[in-house]
Design a protein around this nucleic acid. Structure first.
Lengths: 247, 247
DNA sequence: TTTATAAGAATGGAAGAACCATTACACTCC
DNA sequence: GGAGTGTAATGGTTCTTCCATTCTTATAAA
């Protein structure tokens, strides 16, 4: 299926590393990366300017800039121009970069709709289960608010879609597992790109909208009643119902 | 839990984009990226040299190089030096870069052991379920081979760990869902880094090794018998048994 | 005094030239 | 033939110079 031979990931014994000559920017990336991961450099903290880093690392400015580009593309630093406010800053943790990386991989791999829907179904199910066990009063209040504010009519399909996403992310937050949350974001974001027409068709029909809202209410009730099995089952059938016509 | 406010990802209405002045390398990255994702540029295909790209895009060589660094860090191109064999090449699809990105995020977020184990349990369960429904004869033969080749004694703990990983990845392949596979790789790789001592302790004990191998055999039998529910339940309890002492 | 304007300084963005290190190929010499 | 050598093309790197942006400060005007 295309993943079998990528970088010998199944050849489990990793004793030797590839002996590539280290490039200057790689050293710089490694050092700054370690400082950020270890917490030595804190979010929003400012790094020395490019010209200072050039002196510190004893390299040319181009090498410093290439290192910054890599760190920037990995979502670890942020760059601003200007005299006083400008500079290189440690970026606060964000899922955005990683979600983009996941999405890029899904697109390149040509992940099928079946895989997306199927995976979503599994993860959403377990999310409902955990949410029912762990949701705080505040979580439940928030989900309630989202459900109450979702109007079945008078909004565009993409607005309704956004409201749906908001509900599912709120439930995922209540489940208190951030891996879940990150993966769900990536899957959902890839879906809306790959299956745009499916969403548009389904979320335009008033009947489908009513059903979705009703199911959201039922899931919320199960969570409120701490009925984890029911929350899971409702969530799974919620997903199945939605996609049943297209798979 | 730290994810709530990252980049307004919960503020679902994305109408406007940030109006940042485009930098030269960003344009180059975007164009090459689109060419790769669309398939216009194929894996292993060679891009024009840096000096040619400089002419093509009408920019300085530094801008070209910064663009290459970004693409390289995203795992989309590969760079080799030298006259004939050297150049910039489209990299075949690989999960490695994305798995690294996920792992980096998990470490930065300080994802807890509870979250890792819990998520693994859920995903492995559904993996066993699907594997029982979809494994080909070749898949089953491969899993059988791995199980048969796993010796409970006379190997180091990390060798036994690698064999265990191999089993679970083989099952994940049989499940025919690549999202599953990608996520499992990332979770497992983060676990071995964060919970190294746990693995070392558990996988050193002969008793634990015997239990693991026996459970692997049972899971394989369930898959062979196409008993999806049983495969799922066995897989879940396999994970629970392993971690029960540490959570 | 307040406000508008201009100059200055420090930042990242960018171009261009020059050189080095690596690699494969073609050629020469033995 | 085989071993060595030159050559050309590639990415790696530095240096210099300048531009665009952004804030601070000084100055002039109201």
């Amino acid at each position: 299926m295309g993943l079998e031979h990528d970088n010998n990931s199944h050849q489990v014994r990793h004793i030797f590393q590839k002996a590539a000559p280290t490039r200057a920017f790689e050293d710089i990336v490694r050092q700054i990366e370690e400082a950020i991961i270890s917490g030595e450099l804190k979010p929003h903290e400012r790094l020395p300017s490019e010209r200072e880093l050039q002196q510190i690392f004893g390299v040319g400015r181009a090498s410093v800039r290439e290192a910054i580009r890599v760190l920037e593309s990995n979502g670890m630093v942020e760059v601003r121009t200007g005299a006083v406010s400008g500079g290189i800053f440690v970026k606060p943790i964000s899922t955005a970069t990683t979600v983009e990386a996941l999405q890029r991989l899904f697109l390149l791999e040509k992940i099928s709709e079946r895989e997306l829907v199927e995976f979503r179904q599994a993860v959403e199910g377990i999310t409902g289960y955990w949410a029912a066990k762990r949701a705080t009063d505040e979580d439940i209040r928030r989900i309630q608010e989202i459900v109450d504010n979702t109007e079945p009519g008078d909004i565009r399909w993409d607005e309704f879609h956004d409201a749906d996403v908001e509900f599912h992310l709120a439930v995922a937050e209540a489940a208190k597992n951030r891996i879940n949350l990150i993966v769900m974001k990536a899957v959902r974001q890839t879906m809306i790109r790959v299956m745009r027409n499916v969403f548009k068709t389904l979320m335009t029909r008033r009947q489908a909208r009513d059903a979705i809202i009703q199911e959201h209410r039922a899931i919320l009730e199960a969570i409120r009643n701490r009925d984890a099995e029911r929350a899971r089952d409702l969530m799974v059938s919620h997903i199945i119902t939605f996609y049943k016509d297209i798979l």
